[in-house]
Amino acid sequence: MKILVGYKRVVDYNVRIQVKPDGSGVVTDGVKLSANPFDDIALEEALRLREKGVADEVIVVGIGPADLTAHLRNGLAMGANRAIHVSTAEAVQPLTAARVFLKLIEKEQPGLVILGKQAIDDDANQTGQMLAALWDRPQATFASKIDIADGKATVTREVDAGLEVIEAELPAVITTDLRLNEPRFIKLPDIMKAKAKPIDTIEFASLGVEAHDHLKTTHFAPPPKRSKGVMVKDAAELVAALKQKGLL
């Protein structure tokens, strides 16, 4: 079985995001870029399934500009067999990304697609669900445990009410939550080995995907700030203050 893994490059989670003063975007020049943390978890899970013998090939997929190949090399160094780079200078929205994945699915015929539940830049949390709909296959979002057996995935999902277990016939789309696994670190020899692994570059325009980016972002603003409050000296003063506000 092949597993297709979405591997998006985003502003590193440790970077403090600054909105440009003119409201035209956020500052991304010179900031550190890394793999979307949920995608690292997706790749780790795919690699573990390969190590268990459930899968025999893991393919990382990235959509982005020419220099995205350096990022995809990290996925290869982590252990993916090969990479597909869908080349486009334009940022794509989730529906378009889902349509790109569907094209790659038609070609690669994977048994499983694992994506992060959301990317930590646009926080949309849409691509996996949209892909599953377009593909007309099951979705198991927010996964914290995955068992594959007898042509189906039994997935534990982190939902607001607790933990939900569902069964999904393969092929299916699974999106990862934080507690699914802890991704491995890339070792130096693996970086060397990754240099020999193949990256196929496909021009976005050649896929015949209708770019359906209906949403226009017209303004960026910093979030409203909460003002710093007061420090109280002890429990009695805190209780008195809260009682005065009618909160206790």
Partner: peptide, 20 residues
């Protein structure tokens, strides 16, 4: 988690973007 799971699947069936 209910709406996040469901709404994008609806949007894709309708062929439209979603505002999250």
């Amino acid at each position: 988690t209910f709406g996040k799971d469901l709404a994008p699947r609806v949007a894709a069936l309708l062929g439209v973007a979603q505002v999250s």
